[in-house]
Write a protein that binds this DNA or RNA. Sequence first.
DNA 1: TGCTGTGAAACCCTTCACAGCC
DNA 2: GGCTGTGAAGGGTTTCACAGCA
Lengths: 214, 214
Amino acid sequence: MSDARHIPAVTVSRLPVYLQALHAAAQRNIATVSSNDLANAAGVNSAKVRKDLSYLGSHGTRGIGYAVDELTREIALVLGLVTERAVVIIGAGNLGRALASYDGFTRRGFVLTAIVDSDPAVIGTHVGDLRVEPFTLLAQIVRDRSVEIAVIAVPAHVAQDVAQAACDAGVTALLNFAPTHVTVDPSVSIRTVDFSSELQILSFYAQRANAAVS
Amino acid sequence: MSDARHIPAVTVSRLPVYLQALHAAAQRNIATVSSNDLANAAGVNSAKVRKDLSYLGSHGTRGIGYAVDELTREIALVLGLVTERAVVIIGAGNLGRALASYDGFTRRGFVLTAIVDSDPAVIGTHVGDLRVEPFTLLAQIVRDRSVEIAVIAVPAHVAQDVAQAACDAGVTALLNFAPTHVTVDPSVSIRTVDFSSELQILSFYAQRANAAVS
DNA sequence: TGCTGTGAAACCCTTCACAGCC
DNA sequence: GGCTGTGAAGGGTTTCACAGCA
């Protein structure tokens, strides 16, 4: 397979930020943005923006900048946001329910299709428009509704098993909110978001800041 | 100022994962771990573990590995988790409430001290042990309770103003859950966690996976 | 003149490979 | 024999700086 357009991982991770900035610009009826404008909105420098966008083969106009609507389409295309992707949330505790209610979740190209839990006391309750379904139906749900992405919002000690079950059911990507590393088949993409880790990282720098003052 | 012990940012971001793995080992009554053990638990390779730990000046034992309790203390010390740090959550919507209820949040060295909101309908309601206080009292709360870290759980369009208010109030670190980039004084550390961005990044790789199959 | 696109340089991070020690 | 600690090599990312075009 040709990879004429290999895009570095760091660039991929910044594309959503640019997309966000472009939407903000569109809302203010701005038709073109320079790499500098995008850089300010995204909190990076303009050379990085230009380099990143050059990987998309995206063409801005010298002397002018980038057309907002065109670049928006281009990035959405590269990220695969043109086709809708079905998402299932596993775990209907505080976090799972909050995520299900989060409207930004379903806004761009993602459709929250189901939320499942294994607790009989929770199954059947409602979260927004959805009814919590039994975890045992996961495989069937994934198959019948063509779910591609599973969000893991369960306690750490069951995260690995849940992740494996999701993979077996056929999802191709996992967003893990449990504070633990989970191992899955390399063909499945996984990203972990851990509040506790983030706080600890901030703690390191907060400590630094204090030390610098004293 | 001497920076005899400069620790790379990527290493700092991995330390919480190692800490996590060490706690898991301690719970199973394991006294020593090799770089290989840690690597497996953290999802990285052993050379990276050794390099990372070498920045701490931490001493393992050749032929044996690292003492679990000693390394745990060492990492906690480096991350500044020895002294407790007070946290305030700004925004008592779905997400803010879920975060406040998340016990992993307060588990290691962090004390959730207050949750504030500007909506009169929400002020005075309870979240766990806490009562939602008015956003207008933020500066006073930060001062009186020595708050170091603010968690931003408000809509994107007010995130920048809220972040600035938190900085003015005197916090030294921000954890931003709003799906937008916020700019603050460089002396304040900030990390942004955005569900929507994470999903979009996964979308990119999910798309790749599909393309590889066909 | 203004801004993009991009080679080249600089920098940072990862991985290798092995000396050194238990 | 096993495992750490680390120079050195390798690879990836950022930044520079400027040619090229509107």
